[in-house]
């Protein structure tokens, strides 16, 4: 009998309190793995509800320039999968109520070995994986292993999903990652999508928690989006803050504190 996935526990708790989830993203190993560990701790202390850790990739064909540069720095610092699992194992032991998610390209799972990857992820306390290039059509090669380890594969929908939406929602576990605009990751000033229509369509097919991501650059955008969904995911804005720190040549501690402050601007500092 498997224990309940803490992603479900977290969203149930948030819903009971009428709160929205805040999910910051950070690339593991940018500028190095020690710094990432410090950054994640600051994020949690400043109100992050779930943590999304990006696994750096050599050719991130679905990411914009900010994450591309973060990935390059992370790989240059020698970050390997083992380092990421070890770091997450320490973090999940220290913060047992916070769900840790990995966001990664499918090749990072596939080449590592699917069974080996999931058992390492389980041991590291990882609750879910977001694999943007593993659509429902190709999931069957991973799903049984994910299920066996009690790790959720987080489903994604986009404004182009249209007739695919109900099928995706049916399979979704934990929460639904709702991409709010077309294109790649990166901060945006405005959106073309009508949130009312988009989330309205999703709500009509499923009551799974829905979190919005892609292009959220400031707390005001976050507040706007939260009217329509259960949480928000912020990535590029955080990576941009880290990059600024690296550019100013400040130390890891200062980068972590600066990211913590940014997270606090988004959350108001209250952990649900």
């Amino acid at each position: 009998m498997q224990t309940e996935n803490i992603i479900d526990i977290t969203f149930r708790r948030l819903r009971a309190k009428g709160k929205k989830a805040f999910i910051p993203f950070v690339t593991a190993g940018d500028p190095n793995i020690r710094a990432t560990e410090r950054i994640v701790k600051e994020m949690i202390r400043n109100g992050a509800d779930l943590i999304e850790i990006g696994v750096p990739y050599s050719d991130p064909s679905m990411d914009g320039p900010v994450i591309m540069r973060a990935d390059r720095r992370a790989l240059q610092s020698g970050t390997r999968m083992r380092d990421i699992f070890d770091m997450t194992e320490r973090l999940s032991a220290g913060f047992p109520d916070t769900p840790f998610l990995l966001l990664l390209y499918y090749n990072s799972v596939f080449v590592y070995g699917i069974e080996r990857f999931f058992s390492s992820a389980k041991k590291a306390g990882i609750s879910g994986l977001i694999i943007p290039d593993l659509p429902p059509e190709e999931r069957s090669e991973v799903q049984p292993t994910a299920d066996a380890h009690g790790i959720y594969l987080i489903s994604m929908v986009t404004p182009t999903s249209t007739e695919r939406m109900s099928g995706i929602c049916k399979e979704a576990k934990g929460f639904l990652y709702c991409v709010t605009s077309l294109g790649v990751t990166g901060v945006r000033k405005s959106y073309a999508t009508s949130f009312r229509e988009y989330f309205g369509a999703l709500d009509s097919v499923s009551d799974i928690p829905k979190c919005a991501g892609f292009g959220i650059s400031d707390p005001e955008q976050k507040r706007q989006l939260e009217q329509y969904c259960d949480g928000t995911i912020v990535g590029s804005a955080i990576e941009r803050r880290i990059e600024e720190g690296i550019g100013k040549n400040v130390n890891e501690e200062q980068i972590a504190i600066s990211v913590g402050k940014l997270v606090q601007e988004f959350t108001g500092g209250n952990k649900a």
């Binding site: 943007p132 659509p135 059509e137 929908v157 986009t158 182009t160 999903s161 991409v179 294109g183």
Partner: peptide, 20 residues
């Protein structure tokens, strides 16, 4: 019909492009 050639091929694409 799923674009498989033995174990190879497939459609490992982001959701944004799946409809297309």
């Amino acid at each position: 019909k799923n674009g498989r050639y033995g174990p190879y091929g497939g459609r490992y694409s982001g959701e944004t492009l799946m409809h297309a």
